[in-house]
Every structure is written in C-alpha cells, then in structure tokens.
Amino acid sequence: MKTAVVIVLFFVLAILHQDTWNWSNKDLWFGFLPAGLGYHSAYSLVAALFWYLVSKFAWPHKTEEWAEQEDVPAPVPAASARHRD
C-alpha cells in the first residue's frame, strides 16, 4: 500500500514538472526571479519534502535487515565455473 502511494505521488510530481502554463510567462517574481525559474525552484523544494516523507514512512527496512544478516551465504567465487558463457 505504502509503495503504491509513493509511486502515485511520484507520477503526480512528474506531471507537475511539465508547467506548460509558464511557457511564455516572462513575469519576474519579487522583481527578479523569472516565473518559470521560480516555479521550478519551488518544485525542487517540494521534491525534497516528498523524499523526506518517503524516507520517514516508506523506508525499505527489510532490505536493510537483509544486508545486515550475519548468516550470509558464501560469496560466489570470482571466476565461478558455474557461469557458463
């Protein structure tokens, strides 16, 4: 469920990247920041917020535990004979 929410929100953000409504907009926000540039700077901050929420609520704990397990199977030898090319 968490993964599905993350994927949906990711694609919503991806769609919001295509701000066609700003394409010809030469307005200067605060007198110096072009509208398109201001929008995408804000977008970067929203992306950071999104990843903060993902890392808080959907962190891959299982992957972490799997990597840390001590009963690790022996590594496959470098020039393993069972790798037939």
């Binding site: 990247h17 398109g36 995408h40």
Partner: peptide, 13 residues
Amino acid sequence: IGVYGLMASWSGL
C-alpha cells in the same frame, strides 16, 4: 531559464 527545468528540477526528483 528552461535549462533549470531540463536538468536541475528533474534531477531533484
């Protein structure tokens, strides 16, 4: 200014 959207904001996500 579109260069920011091309690389920077896409890369952030």
